[in-house]
Write a protein that binds this DNA or RNA. Structure first.
Lengths: 360, 360
DNA sequence: GAAGCCCTTGACACCGGTTTCCACTCCCTT
DNA sequence: AAGGGAGTGGAAACCGGTGTCAAGGGCTTC
């Protein structure tokens, strides 16, 4: 009777066990404690990997936990810890494929950790934006949040997070914060690769369509492109740079604008695939054949790049992998090593939309 | 001194108020009770809209709640209620735009309700699928789940949910469950509309590409199409029906197969836009011009329909609205009326990919 | 053999809400 | 004025975990 805590509990115990065994009730920490003949505090220690538990005791408890399939209640645990086991993704990126890939990546990185992902699209221009974000985080007592662009680039949000002491990871194309809060993408490298590709094909009069200026990636992509051109001794004529908005429609309009220039560019590099698809349409309306009359290239390598005609030469961005790294960094589990940054380096994908310019 | 509960609390009170006012601590139900001069039970009654509170008392408490911006802790509340305020979206639909639109719709319907959305993509063919779902729901004590296709069509999942007593809404193109658990889409109507459109243009030899047979929508779309043709006295030749997989690649392959038939169909109706984009590519490879040589139409009206050339005639499905209705139904708030089903009726969007067949 | 220390363990209060139970109003009847 | 019922609010237990702190046991050390 060493494990019995009160003299007349055995009758109750059998009732309790019956309820448990029939599956009518999930096991609680008290059940596990009782079944293992220890106090619930010790079970708690095992759950939280406290080193102050005798190996033999730990194994006994772990066996009982495994046998009954016990998992602690995140709400109760969260209540005591004063925080939840939820991770928020706060975003305003309008591209569905980016969003979904990012979500999948985050879930990859969270798998088996006991955390769950709560999604929170937002409108950065709303007057209540910061208050909404704060409410979201404080009410749910989020463990942490992941911020993809362009929310990641908003210092007000970062300040808020530091202020309320919420863990966060910012995903951006440039370092904006301490290293531990950043996953830095390599848009610049990707744009450089594209610049080299176009130059190597022999293009010299190239149009460029920027993304939304509120996204740092817009500037990085342009910058990387200019780097590559400069290195090859080709100059990017500012007159051939027009500002898009990362949308198909803006790509169409900007494409038409660029194609109206004299002389016409022999290639157009759009800041993302959506806009490149718009350029393809502009080219078609102008009676031009791609890539014979015009090279059109994009950035991101989302599905649209393959669905248009001709399929787009573009830069592949490993969004899902970026998400995985972000989640891993956020929860920083034991056995977590920093993650090889080379996993998220973008690369050129050559398809049929790019070719050498026609000889004059 | 009527509101003072213990004689020597006033000193403590000012400390507590200081902490509150400085924002160092969020208000709890005890603070609100103290500030309003009532017991926390009464505050709880107000929060939970109990009718047993004097109107005057209620207003006083609500004023204090508003003044301090108090919101009850979902974890503590959930712990006592034995359920969380989380809603799960369990899905295996591979289309990013569908997923994102559905999420947005669900969030629309949940806005201001205090619920949050936890996303849970899954693999229905995994051996641990049902166990994963069960674990997800039971651990988080989800308030309810929303099941879009094709998870919604899996009776094992519905059985599981009934078994563990979890609220759920199934989104599908046919009624599969009691009315209160269903949002029924109208794929059939949409496909009928497309059938009528093609017939009215004069097409009689029409190819059809089905979606994945594991999606009920595939059969409904085909069925609705056949209905419309039958009504017009046109027969759908089974030889001109090929099975796709809702992907671009499958659309390409199926398009090639259909265009190889003799005589060639004058129109191809693909079960979704992705496949229609594939058909466009097959047509181009075959040297055909759309819509002069071949009419190609899709279904869903996702963004790809506008980004390809020519832009696709398709059926618009109000996915986001469907999501909103699902969420509203799930949380069935006071003031909730069933929701006008006409809001989610699909409609034809005519673009440039459909035209009358050339005269022979 | 007693003191001192470390390793383990458990009792108890607490996280922030809800529910149960009960006592106390208040108002209306008799 | 007393009695009775409905309406109202408080104390304490509870949801399922965690923090704090002190106690028990085995070991070494003097």
């Amino acid at each position: 009777m060493t494990s019995s805590k009160t003299p007349n509990k055995s009758a109750d115990d059998s009732d309790v066990n019956a309820a448990l065994e029939s599956g009518r009730r999930r096991a609680t920490i008290n059940d596990i404690a009782r079944l293992a003949g220890v106090s619930k505090k010790t079970v708690s220690r095992v759950i939280n990997q406290s080193p102050f538990v005798r190996e033999e005791t730990r194994q006994r408890i772990e066996a009982v936990i495994a046998e009954w399939g016990y998992a602690p209640d995140p709400q109760a645990r969260g209540l005591a810890f004063r925080r939840s086991f939820l991770i928020g993704m706060i975003y305003d990126n309008p591209n569905p494929q980016y969003v979904v890939n990012m979500q999948l990546g985050l879930l990859d990185g969270m798998r088996g950790s006991g955390f769950e992902l709560v999604v929170h699209p937002c409108d950065r221009s709303s007057p209540t934006f910061l208050q909404d974000v704060r409410m979201f985080i404080e009410r749910q007592k989020l463990f942490g949040v992941v911020l993809p662009p362009s929310v990641s680039e908003d210092e007000r949000v970062a300040d808020l997070l530091r202020d309320i002491g919420c863990e966060y990871i910012r995903i951006a194309s440039v370092p904006l914060d301490e290293e531990e809060h950043m996953i830095v993408g390599h848009d610049r490298l990707g744009a450089q690769a594209m610049g080299e590709h176009l130059v190597s094909l022999g293009h010299e009069r190239i149009g460029f369509i920027t993304g939304l200026p509120s996204f740092r990636s817009s500037h990085e992509r342009r910058g990387g492109f200019e780097d590559a051109l400069a290195k090859a001794g080709v100059k990017l004529d500012p007159d051939y740079v027009v500002q898009g908005a990362y949308t198909f429609e803006s790509g169409l309009a900007c494409g038409e604008a660029l194609l109206a220039k004299t002389p016409r560019p022999t290639a157009i590099f759009a800041g993302n695939d959506e806009m490149a698809a718009g350029v393809l349409q502009a080219a078609r309306r102008a009676g031009l054949t791609v890539p014979e009359d015009l090279t059109v290239v994009g950035f991101d390598d989302f599905q649209i790049a393959q669905a248009v005609w001709p399929p787009l030469t573009t830069i592949h961005i490993p969004t899902r992998e970026v998400g995985r790294m972000a989640a891993e960094k956020l929860i920083a589990r034991e056995g977590y090593e920093p993650g090889d940054p080379s996993r998220i380096i973008p690369y050129l994908v050559t398809r049929e939309s790019s070719a050498a310019p026609k000889k004059v």
